Every structure is written in C-alpha cells, then in structure tokens.
Amino acid sequence: MQPRPPQQYSVRNTQTYYVTHDFDGSAHLTTTLAHAIADVSGLDVTKTGFTLYDHVDPDALDSLFTPKEDGTPRTNGMLTFTVRGHQVSVYSDGQIAIVPPRRGPARQQ
C-alpha cells in the first residue's frame, strides 16, 4: 500500500498554507513539514538550501508530537518557530500552518 499524501490547502485571504500530517502513515512529521515548507517557498525539497536543523531539532519535534507508545495521541500541544521568514506552527493533531513573510505595501511611483 502506498503512503497517502498529506492533505494540503491554503486560505486565500490570509495566505496561510495548511497541511495535515498523517501519524498513521510512513513519513515522519518533520518530513511532512520539510515538504510543506518547500511547497510554500516554491522550491524543490531536495534543493531548498536549508535544513530543519538550522531552525529546530527535528528529532525533538517528532518526539514531541508523535503519539505515545500505547498509541494515545498527544493533545493540546503547539510549537511555533520561524523558517526562512515563514512562521511555522505545528499542532499535536498533525496540522501544520505556515504563514509566509509579510510583504510591505506596494510603493507608488
């Protein structure tokens, strides 16, 4: 059976990009996160020029939100950090929200 791709969507008015990690799938949370950041940045995930280690400890992030050993999901957890100017929020239910850097108002000539 092939792994399911994460559910992705963006909210047009806020420019916030959302993806939901599947904890029952084969990928780690940080793999889903790396792909989401690459998607938002418009970069190939293998050629992004950064690693998550530059911004957060991926092993700690995976451990923080992966369900407990008995399969019980983690609840009410959230971590926010910045990657390449993007505000990244990871929630214990697997939702990831990425807000791109704000651009200043267009300059008039």
Rank of each mutant, 00 (worst) to 15 (best):
G77S: 09
R103S: 06
S10Q: 15
G77W: 15
A60C: 09
R102N: 08
H86C: 05
N76S: 02
F65I: 01
P73F: 01
R103I: 14
S10N: 03
R4G: 04
P5G: 01
S26N: 06
H86F: 10
D70R: 11
R103P: 00
T20R: 15
F65G: 11
S41C: 06
F81M: 03
T80H: 08
R107H: 12
T80A: 02
L61V: 07
A60I: 09
R107N: 06
M78T: 13
I96R: 03
Q8T: 04
V11D: 14
P101D: 06
R84T: 10
D59T: 04
Q7K: 07
S26M: 05
Q109G: 15
V19K: 11
L79T: 13
H21C: 07
F65K: 02
H55C: 06
Q108I: 05
Q8V: 02
G49V: 11
R74Q: 04
P6A: 08
D24E: 11
G94Q: 00
P5W: 04
N76P: 01
G85N: 13
D59Q: 10
L52I: 00
I98T: 08
T66I: 05
G85M: 02
S41A: 12
Y18M: 00
G42Q: 03
H86W: 05
D54M: 09
A27K: 11
G71W: 03
V88S: 06
S41I: 03
K68G: 00
N76L: 06
P73N: 15
L64C: 09
A60T: 14
S92D: 12
G85P: 08
P101G: 11
V88K: 14
D39K: 15
K47F: 10
P101T: 03
Q109K: 07
